[in-house]
Amino acid sequence: MLSIDIKTLFCLIFSINIFSFFTTQGQEKIIISEGTLKVAALSEEELYFGLSEGDELVFNFSEVKGKDLKEIEILEYPNGSKFFDYEQESITNKTISIINTGIYKLRLKNTALSARVCRYSLERIPADDNQKFNTTVYWKIRRDTTKYFVEEDYLVSKDTTIVSVIPNKVERVHSQTSTNGLPNRTTVQVTLPENVTSWSYYLGVGEDAEAIFQEAEDNANKRRTQLKAASKFSNGLSSFDPTGSTVLASLALNGLAEFGVPDKADNIQYWFATDYDNAQLFMNGNQFLQFEKGNGPLSYNRMDFPKKGTFYICLFNDNVMDGVDVHIRISAFTITENWGKRTIEKFQVKTWKEPYLKN
């Protein structure tokens, strides 16, 4: 029969107590974080913390109303999963051994249509020689700049041009009692060029009005060298149609023209009909759409509308006995943009937050 004396038994009990004391001290839990998290419907919450090599992580979790949470996961940052559970309402004293010093993350995901309120605790059992490890995670802003190239359109130049749409058309408009049976109404088609900015027109009845026009044209030609300088467009004129009118070019550019008033010329009533159908309504004596009208022996104006397409000049002679010859002139100011392609350098800056530890 084995016998142990009193002294030996006392030494054995003392040794066991001392071993138990230091073991308990070595495994003392340190709270990393504890509290309550509300995970909104169809969302997730994340909590970051640091751990040291050799630590033990003890994790507890419960949903306050006993409802399941879809996903519960602890990861080693950025995506090394250390623990994952699915559709749980509570987890008790889940212990994870930490191999690597680094940043860890608690992820709680809720796929329900109502919120989940979760109590949790994260406790650390530190390695014997690392009691004061700082588990706080800090954040810094990172930026990465990437250079790339794109093709873009750019304006090379602008060509500003005076175009003679109708240099000089003489249109006969018969009287109300014309013996040939022709009507005292007529129309003239006008088609504007592309890229019109503004345009001008002149309508003059008979030779007296034409004499007034030629006098104004002569005066304008004398100042033709100043026309570009007088233009409000810094590039001046790229080209000038030699068949056109200088005085109408000035009118189209700046709204400036100098015409006298004829003493003996007959008058003409006119309208600018919007399209062919409305011109036909005019010819038939019906109501029609128009955007400009007048009545006189000599008429002119600068127009900003329309800038493209076809319209019709409608002429009406209210003279009972005499037909009239109407001189029609139209000039348009156009700006043509010349575009090219070029390669330009651009930069894209990507910004993100990156976690780090201060140990």
Rank of each mutant, 00 (worst) to 15 (best):
D5K: 03
I6E: 12
K7H: 10
S15N: 05
E28L: 06
I30F: 06
E34A: 12
E34Y: 09
L37M: 14
L37V: 12
A40S: 12
L42K: 14
E46C: 00
F49D: 02
G50Q: 06
V58P: 08
N60R: 03
E63F: 01
K67D: 14
E71Q: 15
I74G: 02
L75C: 13
K82G: 15
F83K: 01
Q88D: 13
Q88M: 14
N93Y: 00
N93E: 15
T95Y: 05
I96C: 00
I98M: 01
G102S: 05
I103Y: 02
K105W: 02
L108C: 04
T111V: 10
S114F: 11
R116I: 01
R119P: 08
R119G: 13
S121Y: 00
I125N: 03
N134E: 00
V137L: 00
Y148K: 05
F149W: 09
D153Q: 15
S157Q: 12
D159Y: 11
D159W: 10
T161D: 10
I162T: 00
V163P: 02
N168V: 07
V170I: 13
E171W: 00
T177K: 14
S178K: 07
L182P: 02
N184E: 02
P193L: 03
W199T: 01
G204W: 07
G204I: 01
G204F: 06
I212G: 05
F213L: 03
A216R: 01
E217K: 07
A220L: 05
N221P: 04
N221C: 10
K228I: 11
A230Y: 07
A230Q: 12
F233G: 09
S234Y: 07
N235P: 02
N235E: 11
N235L: 09
N235R: 09
T243M: 04
G244C: 01
V247F: 06
L248V: 01
L251M: 10
L253P: 04
E258R: 13
N267E: 15
Q269H: 10
Y270I: 02
W271M: 07
F272I: 05
D275Q: 08
A279N: 02
L281A: 13
Q287W: 04
K293H: 15
G294S: 09
G294K: 06
G296D: 06
S299L: 10
M303T: 02
K308R: 14
Y312C: 04
F316A: 12
D318M: 09
N319M: 01
M321F: 15
D322R: 08
H327F: 10
R329V: 06
I344V: 15
I344R: 05
K350H: 14
N359R: 07
N359E: 07
